[in-house]
Write a protein that binds this DNA or RNA. Structure first.
Length: 486
RNA sequence: GCCGGGAUGGCAGAGUGGUUAUGCGGCGGCCUGCAGAGCCGUUUCACGGGGGUUCGAAUCCCUCUCCCGGCUCCA
């Protein structure tokens, strides 16, 4: 087994301090991470995918570094507004059916780009009681107050309000271009936000000490994250649009209730832009993940999304996804050629000095990841690795099976960080079941080539191509790899 | 208006004081039965404008211009 480099420390950008900090978990090697999940009233789009992808990489990387990670990501299945009510009519289904449909789609989509399942995916609707308890506590501590239409959080009581977003309450009131109409709600401060909203019975509702209704949006994340990770935990993530008001309000509620620091590191992704504008549901400017996966393939898409640093806006560009396929192919090839050498049980004694090169590139990879998850740079070292392997084979011939195995052992963990579950599914595929038949066909093809019967030789090559198998001819013979799983 | 992030070669995209990022594309060559892939070379100061600090700046400081995001349900 290859042991990860522990000497280097992960440095990450914390929105709270607006600075890159050395990552130091609250409890030695245990890490609690809460990733703000999807509101399941529509299919996941590319912007969501990018965000969940980088947290997937983060969790995998933390585990790679030896941390014991508890990964929690919620499913917001309470999202009711006029638009949703309209959709229910359009699709002629109940609220429950709509939520179920998109929750299932959400998990399918996550799986399609190789995302880990979180340790817990709590549903908001199953934690109403926890939310009510939290609201009760806030009322007891005088941070919450009850009005005609619900329960609100008084932001003027929480001195540190605004510490995450930099938006202070007075500015909120005066600023925001008067978009918030103070008299619309029965609130003490314009910036006060709902903990519980009273509703009519014609919308989905739950019982509470303050009458029937539904919880405010922010309370679910406070209640569920603290339930599964404790009152203080390490990492809380989301898209940049969550910074204000969502995460600001979460901090206020949680810290007001417990008197403790809620979260140590706040991490946020920047948006994916489409035609210069934010990809979002409300503007109808979006590309669904499932459509992009269908069009470009999950490996290419996953690599493409990680080829821009997560704190940089990503301008969605289809040409870029197509380009990513070249890197993907090269990696596939390098890995599968090594697998092939193992299957062939090559004992050439070739390849020992390649291991050092690979090991150095592995360290480069780790250094890049430690630097605030610099995936574009980490991917560059994967590109280098693939190139080194292929060049080496070209120059020195088949690599000894014991060295091939050693190299794969070094590479498996780091490539999996980038490609997630897709690595074993689409890159390091089990070649053994194809091995005998393909080798036999290659033997035949090479015989035909020697005879100069290229026409028949090409028929075999085309047949293999139809099976999703590509051939590469070297001086020492032909190698093959599975480019498409059929 | 307030808060935040940017501007790098034809394109995408790293790099924070001195050495080739990388990938794609273009051009020339090599390899190959062919194709693909690969390899080598090349694509003249790549670092938004101006000023400053320094022996030396894409990298630090000042200033200007432009772009983007958040401030409203949002990843």
């Amino acid at each position: 087994m290859v042991t990860p480099v522990h000497s280097s420390k992960l440095r990450i950008y914390n929105t709270l301090s607006k600075d890159i900090e050395e990552f130091q978990p609250i409890n030695k090697d245990k890490v609690g991470i809460y990733a703000c999940g999807l509101t399941v009233n529509d299919y996941m789009h590319i912007g969501h995918a990018r965000t969940y992808l980088i947290w997937d990489v983060l969790v995998r990387y933390l585990r790679f570094k030896g941390y014991k990670v508890t990964y929690v990501s919620n499913v917001t299945d309470i999202s009711i507004d006029d638009k949703i009510l309209k959709r229910l009519k359009e699709e002629n289904i109940s609220f429950q059916q709509l939520i179920e449909k998109y929750t299932m789609a959400y998990f399918e989509d996550r799986e399609s780009i190789g995302l880990l399942r979180a340790d817990v995916h709590p549903l908001a609707t199953q934690h109403i009681q926890e939310m009510i308890e939290l609201i009760k506590k806030l009322i007891e501590k005088d941070y919450g107050y009850v009005t005609e239409d619900g329960v609100y959080f008084n932001i003027s009581k929480f001195k540190e309000y605004g510490k995450l977003s930099g938006i202070r309450s007075q500015e909120l009131i005066a600023g925001a271009g008067g978009r918030i109409k103070a008299d619309e709600y029965d609130k003490e401060n314009v910036g006060d936000f709902a903990l519980w909203k009273k509703t009519n019975t014609d919308e989905p509702y739950w019982y509470s000490p303050w009458g029937i209704g539904r919880p405010g949006w922010h309370i679910e994340c406070s209640a569920m994250s603290m339930k599964y990770l404790g009152e203080s935990f390490d990492i809380h993530t989301g898209g940049e649009d969550n910074i204000f008001p969502h995460h600001e309000n979460e901090i206020a509620q949680s810290e007001a209730a417990t008197g403790k620091r809620f979260v140590k590191y706040w991490l946020h992704t920047r948006h994916v832009l489409l035609g210069g504008e934010k990809m979002s549901k409300s503007y109808k400017k979006l590309i669904y993940l499932r459509d992009a996966v269908k069009k470009f393939g999950s490996l290419n898409l996953r690599l493409y999304l990680l080829q821009t640093h997560y704190r940089k806006q990503l301008l969605y560009d289809e040409k870029g996804i197509e380009e990513a396929s070249l890197t993907v192919n090269r990696i596939k090839k390098a890995i599968q050629f090594l697998q092939l050498f193992i299957l062939k049980n090559i004992s050439s004694n070739v390849g020992e000095n390649l291991i050092d090169t690979i090991e150095n590139k592995r360290i480069e990879f780790i250094e890049a990841m430690d630097d605030d998850l610099n995936t574009p740079l980490a991917i560059k070292s994967l590109q280098d690795i693939a190139k080194e392997i292929l060049q080496y084979i070209e120059s020195y011939g088949p690599i000894d099976s014991k060295f091939s195995l050693k190299i794969l052992e070094i590479l498996d963990p780091i490539i999996t960080i980038i490609f997630g579950n897709l690595y074993s599914r689409e890159i390091r595929i089990d070649m053994s079941k194809y091995f005998w038949i393909v080798e036999k066909m290659l033997e035949e093809r090479n015989l035909l080539r020697k005879e100069g019967n290229f026409e028949k030789a090409d028929i075999i090559r085309n047949k293999l191509k139809e099976m999703g198998i590509e051939i590469e001819d070297f001086k020492f013979g032909s190698l093959w790899y599975i480019s498409k799983i059929t």
